[in-house]
Design a protein around this nucleic acid. Structure first.
Lengths: 230, 230
DNA sequence: CAAACCAGGTGACATATATCAACCAGTAAA
DNA sequence: TTTACTGGTTGATATATGTCACCTGGTTTG
């Protein structure tokens, strides 16, 4: 068992830009307090508003991150897939989660106590540097999302979402997704009905093809144009 | 002159959560390469898309930070006032600015080479920790803005903006602002006309009072209710 | 001085989008 | 088998919001 854990941590180290910066001691100290947990589809990893004790690193599966407002509406702000750790800003401020995370598929995640993680951040400056880079990328993505959601209208927003899913999340063109239409709507800031309607117009125009959970982008240049024109 | 610069840096150190973490050597190395610049109202500190060489710290005045999309529309994502340094995510990734900064009033800013700043980040872990905390707070604010802009309708969004201006930016209740109606609209994700209209309904309901550039919140509880109900 | 210009402001109108209700197919439960 | 239930889908309708055109008063500019 201890062996398989080692192997697992080493694997993460090889695959992740940021864990690569850890030395043996640090790797060991993370390893010794880390807990690996399996989540089923739909299960919550952590909930907005709850106290945050741990850093979460996804080793298998896919997780959606979303904000919920009082009005029951949700916005999906991102995803985590292997090997991503989830940046939890509350860990550095009020020790609360400011968004929720739920497994879209069978998912395994490693939990590491926030204190251990923060200690290593303090000790290892190149690790901290990689961490900063990652946070910065996320901030930039956030700007783009903000801009897309507030300035584009529905076709543009949905085109953004489809391109993002294919190119950043699934890295495949016909891709099979575990996202519901509601999830797609939550990504693009509209209602489920509207999302379905726009998807239909895209299908009618031969921009995409859908078959159950499969989505294929047939005319990417056109989708990019739609995205640009808002 | 050298003396006044010292005094200025020391002042910043006393007033800022993050610069307080610097030791004498670090303070000196920042001081020795720092440039203080005065900007007039409306002048650009840096422009979205341009290369970023420096970290910017505001020592006097007020600066608005905004994203511009191809469609000429803008979103104000925040402000910087004394003593704030501006977190430029591009400095850790692609060395480009991802938003623009423009002075709303007479403003003085200190520019420090990004390399110097990053060196100190690497050396001084408690400085880096304070930096991380600040970035995290900004990320959390971003979540709230995203949620407000996508889920609330205009009165709720404008209430958010007015409360934010009074409580976080100006820290005063009748406050005099250098923001135009267009700026207020850019903060709340609507057109200038819509912003003016909602402001008028607020005035008619005695929630606020405006007189030129002065805005007074007359019924804060009600504004908070409007904000909550979206 | 007049001319031009700008930000603030208002009204009429068009439209993007949400809401509501209903229907359907597949699947789980009884 | 029937029932309920879920997620996807569609249509009719209401409404929030943007667009456009215009007016105002103050300020700059020639």
């Amino acid at each position: 068992m201890a062996n398989s854990i080692e192997a697992n941590c080493l694997l993460c180290m090889q695959q992740s830009d940021i864990f690569r910066k850890l030395n043996d001691t640090e790797l060991h100290s993370i390893n010794s307090c880390r807990v690996s947990i399996k989540y089923h589809q739909g299960e919550i990893l952590f909930k907005q508003g709850s106290p945050c004790h741990d850093f979460v690193c996804i080793t298998q599966g896919l997780v959606k991150l979303y904000i919920e407002s009082e009005s029951e509406k949700r916005i999906i702000i991102g995803f985590a897939k292997p090997i991503d750790y989830i940046f939890v800003p509350g860990a550095f401020t009020d020790k609360r989660h400011h968004f929720s995370a739920v497994a879209l598929e069978e998912t395994t995640a490693c939990l590491v106590g926030a204190d251990v993680f923060q200690q290593i951040l303090e000790m290892n400056s190149s690790f901290a540097g990689a961490f900063l880079t990652k946070i910065s990328e996320q901030a930039i993505r956030m700007f783009e999302q903000l801009s897309s959601l507030t300035h584009k209208q529905m076709p543009g927003r949905l085109a953004d979402v489809l391109l993002c899913l294919s190119q950043k999340i699934y890295n495949a063109n016909p891709f099979v997704t575990s996202l519901s239409r509601q999830d797609i709507a939550d990504m693009s800031g509209m209602t489920k009905e509207s999302a379905i309607r726009i998807l239909k117009t895209f299908k009618d125009d031969n921009l995409i093809r859908t078959e159950g959970d499969l989505i294929e982008l047939l005319n990417i240049p056109m989708l990019e144009t739609i995205s640009r024109n808002g």
